[in-house]
């Protein structure tokens, strides 16, 4: 491994990677997912604010879905969703103590991105059809599903909130791993848009 998988490639440049809308999407998502989560667990009994915060997350996800097809290349799903070969290849260099200089979400990180987006979409769906039998916090679409489904949805929504917590903790842990193990700051690019990447 004297010349590791990332060593013999091209020059490193600073480029505009994340477009402004994607960055706004990310930080608004953080704000409203955290708000929804905290309101769900600790908020007032009348959960109106929780519902509205959840609807904002739903709107953000719809934007992200569209942006994944028509946005600039680094935002597109086709740009970062890769097969098992690419993921395995990326993982070989994963623990090297050097930055990845990857031009976008790397093939492994893409799995985490998709998992978070899918878990949030599922969370909104179960929320919309939940009926916790309290006559004040009934999901607006609960009457369109069977009564067994709308009570089960409450349980799924609770499990989903734990899953989201786990995924976010992993997400943040990995960002810290890049920062302190790989000496690569991924957060700054998510703020300024500019990232050091290796041309290939």
């Amino acid at each position: 491994m004297s010349d590791g998988p990332v060593k013999q490639m091209g020059a490193i440049d600073e480029v505009r990677l994340w477009d402004p809308l994607l960055r706004a999407f990310h930080w608004l998502l953080v704000l409203f997912v955290v708000t929804s989560w905290l309101l769900g667990k600790f908020g007032p009994d009348q959960m109106t604010l929780h519902f509205w915060s959840g609807y904002v997350v739903a709107g953000l996800l719809i934007f992200r879905l569209v942006w994944g097809f028509v946005g600039p290349p680094p935002a597109r799903f086709s740009h970062f969703i890769r097969g098992p070969g690419a993921i395995a290849g990326y993982m070989r260099g994963m623990f090297l103590r050097q930055p990845s200089y990857w031009p976008g979400h790397n093939p492994l990180g893409a799995l985490s991105v998709i998992a978070m987006l899918a878990a949030l979409a599922a969370q909104i769906t179960t929320g919309l059809i939940s009926d916790p039998d309290d006559y004040i916090n009934v999901g607006p679409l609960a009457s369109y599903v069977s009564s067994a489904t709308r009570s089960k949805a409450v349980g799924w929504h609770g499990l989903g909130s734990t899953l989201i917590l786990l995924l976010v903790l992993i997400h943040v842990a990995v960002i810290l791993f890049y920062r302190f193990w790989k000496h690569e700051n991924l957060v700054k690019p998510m703020i300024t848009g500019k990232k050091l990447i290796r041309r290939r």
Binding site: D45, Q46, P132, D133, D134, Y135, I136, N137, S151, K152, A153, V154, G155, W156, G158
Partner: peptide, 17 residues
């Protein structure tokens, strides 16, 4: 008010789903 009382008890003492 009533619904808040239902919720407070269901949250802690009723199995979900």
């Amino acid at each position: 008010k009533l619904g808040g009382a239902c919720k407070a008890c269901h949250d802690d003492y009723r199995e979900k789903g």
